[in-house]
Nucleic acid binder design. Structure first.
Lengths: 336, 336
DNA sequence: CTGTTAGCGCTTTCAC
DNA sequence: GTGAAAGCGCTAACAG
């Protein structure tokens, strides 16, 4: 049988409360007593039962995280950043994935709530009204992540997908591209991709370019990117640039161009989003938008911790920014 | 204040025990009583506190998972498979990552133990002696995953990395390749990669081929793969095939060959391991070993569940197999 | 079938 | 500074 706090108390000839105080680093314990207790803990190989502590203290030391999917490294990296940071503070992560389905998301959050997490991390800023209500009613701190919004449930750590999309389009325009088509991943609609597209559309409006069909919807796979190339070719009008909503689509498009003998960027420039490792390695290297996801995760972890200790946040929204990385896939179109 | 079980009991005019029985689906509750209790639960919007249940029942409904890193989709997919399966059974996953460090792994496991998980999932079959002891002493079921071993801590769900490496080398030999160099990822040594290499070495011995330096060590990145190509070129002796320990290395090698104008597979055949999406999309498409990771995860989930309910396992080791996928990157060497 | 009761192992007043 | 005792919300034995 595992040692419990009463065993330690008896062994150290103190009360259970004192052991608890030592465990939790309370100040009002004499040096001497503390030493005796610590020695007993050591000798009995006592490990506190965090479940019992959670019940008694009404604080579990667990944070719940909900992501759309773990298979995509973007989300996995954010989670990695969060756990890295929180582990140092004795907090554990409970994890679930929604498969990009807001209804499933709500279900998971409800289920998690029964486990009394101290806080929530949720990917994205779009959630069902029911989700928002449940979360608000629970009174648990919530950090949304990966995008920005003026109306967070509680607070948000992310970057502006809208601005990233918009600035990228402007950059392409500056570099001489005029016929830009945006490739969206329709199968997994989410606020991040939607905002990237809106940014593109805003830029188009500002620049007064491209009036015809400018958006193609594909699945967020390499094959989806390949199909986007086929679709663009079938449009029967000049297109010099494919602004893809993700690196996966962009890489798929580049590989398809390779197969079809279309020169990139000579005949078609291509951009992505995420800066996956492959983006800098592929030939031609891919112009894309880089986000420090692990950093975002660590930042979210810090905010989570601040919310736990009721610290006042300087702001409801923390912008971790993004960086446009210009590479070979968008060298100015040669020829005409 | 949230409703608690006593509130429900009062509201339904029954005892707390009865509510608990209804909650846990015990059979010995009359239809009528059950209905009344359910109605009260509904009306009071009662949600059981699983922390309290965990303490009382000595069963938390939480399973702890430890992976080396989440950023690599292989591990993330296994986790996804496990959670998918376990979520249907009301079990939640607690997650941590060790960064391929066995000492960190031990630390995490110790920390997790304090939260009284009902079981552990651990990546790999190599763990420190301390880890094995702690886990054994705790009496918690443990499922190791992603490889096979004769001496699991408790039980294991995986596939034979050794056999995969061995069979791949044999296949290459059958296809006419004679000068095969293995590229290992030395920076993140682990049992999976080690066994793949051993399989290759075993095959070489069986086939009596390649006596000189046959193994290159790189970091498991695209760049590592590129460097392996450079290293092989510098060897100054004929090498017709690069058998890479991971798809990441292999893709890096293919891209480097593209840059250097080395024909793949004409001058150099290349193989990978994992069958990432890029493997079938890259030009030339990559011969590799495919593992159904989500399936592995779901299988591990099932085993975890069986161990929880003290079901007798048919075997300590479950082999989910692998599949060699032959693609363009290993078409028989032309020319000489 | 159902109510009552005694814990699960810890934290947290409250006196001393 | 420290001990005693009352819960935290639930389950599980035990009567009835």
């Amino acid at each position: 049988m595992r040692a419990k706090i009463a065993d330690v108390a008896r062994h150290a000839r103190v009360g259970a409360g004192t052991v608890s105080r030592v465990l939790n680093g309370a100040k009002n314990v004499s040096r001497h007593t503390r030493a005796r207790v610590l020695a007993s803990i050591d000798e009995l190989e006592y490990v506190p039962n965090l479940v019992a502590r959670g019940l008694a203290a009404n604080r579990t030391g667990i944070i719940a995280a909900v992501v759309p999917a773990l298979g995509y490294s973007q989300h996995a990296e954010v989670i990695q950043g969060i756990t890295e940071f929180l582990h140092e503070h004795g907090i554990t992560l409970m994890i679930g994935h929604s498969g990009y389905d807001l209804e499933v998301e709500r279900e998971i959050i409800s289920a998690f709530l029964a486990r009394r997490p101290d806080a929530f991390y949720i990917t994205g800023v779009d959630h069902s009204e029911a989700t928002r209500r449940i979360l608000r009613d629970s009174g648990v701190p919530v950090v949304e992540g990966g995008n920005l919004t003026d109306t967070p449930i509680d607070c948000v750590v992310g970057y502006s997908n809208f601005e990233a999309g918009r600035q990228l389009t402007h950059l392409l325009h500056e570099r001489g591209h005029r016929h830009i088509v945006h490739v969206n991943n329709g199968s997994e609609v989410n606020d991040r991709n939607r905002d990237r597209q809106r940014g593109y559309e805003a830029a188009c409006a500002e620049l007064k370019i491209a009036k015809k069909k400018r958006v193609i919807t594909g699945t967020n796979t390499l094959d989806g990117g390949a199909q986007a190339v086929a679709e663009v070719l079938a449009l029967g009008r000049p297109v010099d640039t494919l602004q893809c909503g993700t690196d996966v689509l962009a890489v798929g498009a580049i590989l398809e161009c390779q197969r079809r003998g279309i020169a990139v960027p000579g005949q078609l420039a291509i951009t992505g989003f995420d800066d996956l490792p492959i983006a800098s390695a592929i030939v031609p290297s891919l112009t894309t938008v880089k986000i420090d996801r692990i950093g975002l995760g660590r930042r979210a972890g810090r905010v989570l911790l601040q919310r736990l200790s009721n610290e006042v946040l300087p702001s409801k929204a923390i912008d971790v920014g993004f960086q446009i990385v210009e590479r070979a896939s968008t060298k100015p179109p040669t020829g005409r």
